[in-house]
Simulated assay, not measured.
Amino acid sequence: MKVAIYGQNYANENNQVAFETLLDELKAHEVEIYVEAQFLKLQKEVLHNDWSFGIFTSLDNSYDLLISIGGDGTILRAITYVKDLDINIVGINTGRLGFLATIQTNEIKDALAEILKGDYKISERSLLSVDIDPENKDVKTTNFALNEITISRKNTTSMITVETHLDDEYLTSYWADGLILATPTGSTGYSLSCGGPVISPEASSFVLTPIAPHNLNARPLVITDKTDVKLKVSGRENQFLLSLDSRIITLPNTATVRIKKADFKIKMVELNSESFLDTLRKKMLWGEDRRN
C-alpha cells in the first residue's frame, strides 16, 4: 500500500505526537510512506534516523490512501491534493470538534490496523464546483469545495444584496452579510453556525443559508443537489469575497458566480464502529444533561 501523509502547516505538539505514532505504526506494517513537503519541514525535530519515507508535493493515482493530521480544516486543504483522483482519505483529529477527522491520537494503532486490513467503509461526499463570469484565474485549478462556497461583504460594515437564481429561475435577493451554499458535509460547519440544518451525508441535497439577513423572514433553504445556482452581488463597495472552504478570493461586483454539484466525489474512510449519527451525537453533546 502507498500512503501519503498531510498535516497542518504550523508547528503543533499534538501533531508531532500523532505524526510520530503514525510513522511507527505504518513502518510496522511495511507500508510505502510519503510525507507532504511543507508539513515535513515542521516535524524534523521528532524524526528518527531509521524512518524511511519519501516526500510529495502532488499526488497521482498510484497512492491508495491519504492520512490527514489535524482538524477538519486540514482535511479541507488536503482535498486540494486529492481532487478527482481515486484516493481514500482518513483524518486523525488533533484539532477540536472533528466531524471529518474522527480518529483520536490514542486510537491510531487500532484504527490503522483495521484500515490496512480493509476493514472499513467508504463515505462518498459530494462537492460544489464554481464558475466565474468573467473567468477568474484564482479558481481555475481549485474551483471546488467540500464544505461550502460563501459570498460575503468586503471592506464594509454595510450589508450586500445577493441576487439568487435556481436553475435560471429567480428565487430572491438576500439583503445580508453574505450567503452560504453548503453540502451535506458542510452543513455541520459555517452553515450550522448561521442557523442552517444538519443534513445527512447521504442526502442528495444542498442548503442555502443567509448570513445575518436583514430581511428576517429569509430562512435556510434545502435544495436538490442537481440545482444550478447563479449569484450576483451588489452593494456600496465594488468588491465582495468568495470563499471555497478555506480559500478566499476577491471579485468585482460585475462578476456572476455559478455553482453546481462537482462531477466527482471525495471518498472518506470510516471505521465500521463509526457512524454519522454517533459522531453527531458525541460532537453536539445531544442527550447530555449536566444535572445527571
Rank of each mutant, 00 (worst) to 15 (best):
K41Q: 15
K41T: 13
L42H: 14
Q43R: 06
V46A: 10
L47I: 01
L47V: 00
L47R: 00
N49W: 09
N49K: 13
D50W: 02
D50M: 02
D50Y: 02
W51G: 01
W51Q: 00
S52C: 07
G54R: 11
I55E: 06
I55T: 08
I55K: 05
F56G: 03
F56N: 04
F56V: 05
F56P: 04
T57C: 09
T57N: 08
S58L: 11
S58Q: 13
N61F: 05
S62V: 06
S62W: 05
Y63Q: 12
Y63L: 14
D64M: 00
L65F: 01
I67H: 00
I67A: 02
G71Y: 00
D72Y: 00
T74G: 06
I75R: 05
I75P: 06
L76F: 11
L76A: 14
L76S: 14
A78H: 04
A78K: 05
T80P: 05
Y81A: 13
V82S: 03
V82M: 02
D84Y: 09
L85M: 11
I87M: 13
I87P: 11
I87F: 13
N88F: 08
N88Q: 09
N88G: 05
V90T: 06
I92K: 02
G95T: 07
G95Y: 01
R96V: 02
L97K: 01
L97A: 02
G98D: 01
L100W: 06
A101L: 06
T102Y: 12
T102G: 11
I103T: 04
N106W: 09
I108C: 09
I108W: 08
I108P: 07
K109C: 13
A111C: 03
A111T: 01
L112E: 00
A113N: 12
E114S: 12
E114N: 14
I115Y: 02
I115A: 04
L116R: 15
G118W: 06
D119W: 11
Y120V: 10
Y120H: 13
K121T: 15
I122Q: 07
S123Y: 14
S123C: 15
S123R: 12
E124R: 10
E124H: 10
R125E: 03
R125Q: 05
R125S: 07
S126T: 15
S126Q: 15
S126E: 11
L127F: 03
S129G: 12
V130T: 11
V130A: 11
D131W: 13
D133V: 15
D133N: 11
E135P: 15
N136I: 13
V139I: 13
V139N: 08
N143A: 14
F144V: 07
A145N: 08
A145E: 09
A145R: 10
A145D: 10
L146N: 04
L146Y: 05
I149H: 11
I149T: 11
T150C: 10
T150N: 09
T150A: 12
I151G: 00
I151Y: 00
S152I: 03
S152Q: 12
R153A: 00
T156V: 01
T157D: 12
I160K: 00
I160M: 00
I160R: 01
V162R: 05
V162Y: 07
E163I: 08
T164Q: 07
T164K: 06
T164P: 10
T164D: 09
H165G: 07
H165N: 12
H165K: 12
H165W: 13
L166F: 04
L166R: 03
L166M: 04
L166Y: 03
L166N: 04
